[in-house]
Simulated scan of single mutants.
Amino acid sequence: MSALPAAPAPTAVPFSVQIRETSQAQHTQAESSAFMSRLLGGELGVAAFRRYTEQLWFVYRALEGAADRLAGDPVAGPFIRRELFRSGALGRDLDHLHGGADWRTSLRPLPATERYAARVMEVARDWPGGYVAHHYTRYLGDLSGGQVIRSTAEKLWGFERKGDGVRFYVFEDIANPAAFKRDYRDRLDAIPADGPERLRIADECKRAFDLNTALFEDLLSGDFSR
């Protein structure tokens, strides 16, 4: 009697899939937050959009402030892409949203923003894999769902299409966002980390989305009259 053929070896789940599926619940909670739903529904007005943009300034300064130091790191280095950087665009948007007033001296982070930025700086200093988790949740979100925010803001508040006020969402140096995202996921799949470390990075993605949700909660409780 001939032997039965051996069963095929199980195929490992790509890390880009693992990281997405592990943090899916937290991702959904963040994108469906009351603040974002009311903002995109037109309930909160342009002042709330400005406050949100202000808080992003602190998060991206934390992310991009560590980029030069991590550029040569074997884990984080492959993700440091200058065409992703948003601080310059955020500054230009805030100049527009503040009518040219000097916002840099008066801007303050909300408590949730402060915790968010502090966590980004902590992992950037001590744990490159954790930095990748925050990099992934922010920049791939900007390239994807961020475009919905941009187009809605243009319609609701009359910003010039891809102009001042919404330049944060415009990646002028990325000609093909879909191809760029595929390449980014390939880099995730190739990250030099073992199974336990990959689980740890995926868990940090969950934390990143939770920090973003907390920021939305702080924003929702804010005064948008100023």
Rank of each mutant, 00 (worst) to 15 (best):
M1E: 08
M1Q: 10
A3Y: 07
A6Y: 08
A7D: 07
A9M: 13
A9H: 00
A12V: 00
A12L: 02
A12G: 02
P14G: 13
F15H: 11
V17P: 00
Q18W: 09
S23D: 02
Q24K: 10
A25F: 10
T28A: 15
Q29M: 15
E31A: 15
S32T: 00
S37F: 10
L39T: 00
G42K: 09
E43I: 05
E43S: 13
G45E: 01
F49P: 03
Y52I: 12
T53K: 11
Y60T: 01
Y60F: 14
R61M: 09
R61P: 01
A62M: 07
L63M: 11
D68H: 14
R69P: 06
G72M: 11
D73S: 14
P74I: 07
V75S: 07
G77C: 02
P78T: 08
F79Q: 08
I80E: 10
I80F: 12
S87M: 07
A89Q: 08
R92W: 06
L94T: 00
L94C: 06
D95F: 03
H98S: 10
G99H: 08
W103P: 01
W103A: 07
R104Q: 15
T105N: 15
T105Q: 10
S106C: 07
L107R: 09
L107H: 01
R108C: 12
A112L: 14
A112K: 08
E114D: 09
R115N: 08
Y116V: 02
A117L: 06
A118T: 05
A118M: 13
R119P: 03
V120I: 10
M121K: 03
M121W: 08
A124V: 03
D126A: 11
P128F: 09
P128I: 07
V132A: 12
A133E: 06
H134V: 03
H134E: 12
H135F: 13
Y136M: 12
Y139Q: 06
L143F: 14
G146L: 03
G146D: 11
R150Y: 05
S151G: 14
A153G: 08
K155W: 11
L156S: 15
W157H: 11
E160H: 11
V166K: 01
V166S: 05
I174Q: 03
P177R: 10
A178V: 08
A179W: 06
F180Y: 15
R185F: 08
L188Q: 00
D189V: 11
A190P: 02
P192C: 13
P192I: 03
G195T: 06
G195V: 12
E197N: 03
R198S: 02
K206C: 15
A208K: 02
A208W: 07
F209M: 15
D210K: 01
L211M: 04
A214E: 15
A214D: 08
A214F: 11
F216M: 13
L220P: 00
S225N: 09
